Simulated scan of single mutants.
Amino acid sequence: MKTLFDATTIKGRTLKNRLFRSATWERLADGDGRLTPQLLAVYEELAQGGVGAIITSALYLQATARSLPGQLGLYDAAGLDGHRRLVATAHGNGALLLGQLAFAGRDGVMWTANDPSTAVLDELPQYYARGAALAREAGYDGVQVHAAHGYFLSQFLSPAANGRTDAYGGSSEGRRALLMAIYAAVRREVGEDFLLSVKLDCRDMHETPGVFEECLGAATALDAAGIDLVEVSGLGGNKGICGGKKQAQSVFRPEAAAVAEAIAAPVILVGANRSPATMEAIANETAIAYFALSRPLLRQPDLPARWQGGSTETARCVSCGKCYDEAGNNCFFVRRAAAGEA
């Protein structure tokens, strides 16, 4: 019988359990996208809390491509010391660290899939490859290409959002051409022993027909090309899943299970994973291998250690959607407690 705390191995790297911290924007980097003491403290608390692997917040890959305030960057050698400190913090506490590579636009302007020219898109894979090379130099275990949550890359996979008529649109193959080119460029740059992951949307905010089919097609194509991990997410945009106390759990289970049955690479399920009993049941009833948590770890960064210690508690996160704050993306209830409020 599988448990959340089985040790598993991917390409020689051991994960001490089946729990990932899914990429979560912290809003704590400095004006140049460099590590700050406050941001390092977040990763230290996560690593000490017992999660098996941490996926960083979205890392921007060009100096002018920051799209979110306080976003962490990975675009030149000058920032590597900070990333090495993140790696040391994770590894020192037994957690793997993957850097999430992202492109959303330039100069604070969010792009749509239909905005850039073909020539601009032809150049993008090299930035992902350089980001991956920098991550490898810093000591990361791997990288994840962010193609979810309604951002730039995920729009290419959407039949509704991608209206292109060039090589990057017009058919399923065209819609995933940019993602496939990015994967190929990254793999050529970092080699076979570096973990490569992708995050895909299986649904969007509008329940657009065909989104899951494009997700499955992209996952299958990437699997054939040699992808190491596929994280299945959905809904898109920054609204996320905000169902309050009535929030359903593990909401993308059906789609993630279907992807896991279709590909050889391990699948990570993210999206309202709250109950250890539910996750263990999913691990035993489907081919889903791993589970990722985001907002529950904002409220309880030590939740994995609690579960490993025998607690059967459901995560205290109530999906209220009040995480975002000018001082950083963190739990409303933690902020309130720190302020001495009831």
Rank of each mutant, 00 (worst) to 15 (best):
C331Q: 05
A272W: 00
D325I: 00
D81T: 09
L59P: 00
D325W: 14
L46R: 04
R306F: 05
D6C: 05
Q62M: 14
T3P: 10
A90H: 03
G309N: 10
A281L: 08
T208I: 01
A289T: 15
R13D: 09
I182V: 14
R66L: 02
F194D: 01
Q100W: 00
L74K: 09
V87Q: 06
L68A: 04
V232G: 05
L293G: 03
V51F: 10
S250I: 01
Q100P: 02
Q48E: 15
A225W: 12
V120K: 12
A327M: 10
S233R: 04
A78F: 08
Y140I: 03
N93E: 03
T312W: 04
S172F: 07
L195E: 02
G170Y: 06
T56F: 04
I182R: 07
R188Y: 00
R335F: 06
G309A: 15
L28C: 09
T56H: 07
A29Q: 03
W307F: 10
E137Y: 02
Q38W: 01
A88M: 00
A342F: 12
G240A: 06
E123P: 02
L157G: 08
R299W: 08
L216Q: 15
Q144P: 00
R84H: 06
L124T: 00
G310C: 12
V145C: 02
L297H: 00
L72C: 04
R85A: 15
R203A: 13
E189T: 13
G82W: 06
D76N: 15
L97H: 04
A47H: 09
E214Q: 15
E213F: 10
G99K: 00
V87A: 08
V51Y: 08
G163Y: 01
A257L: 00
A90R: 00
G31Y: 01
R274G: 03
C215H: 11
S117Q: 06
Y75A: 01
L98P: 04
Q100A: 01
E26W: 06
A289N: 07
A181S: 15
I227N: 06
N93Q: 14
R136N: 00
R203N: 13
C323N: 05
D81M: 00
R253F: 01
A102G: 14
G108I: 07
G142N: 09
D223F: 11
T9K: 13
N329T: 13
P301H: 04
N114H: 00
G340P: 09
A260C: 11
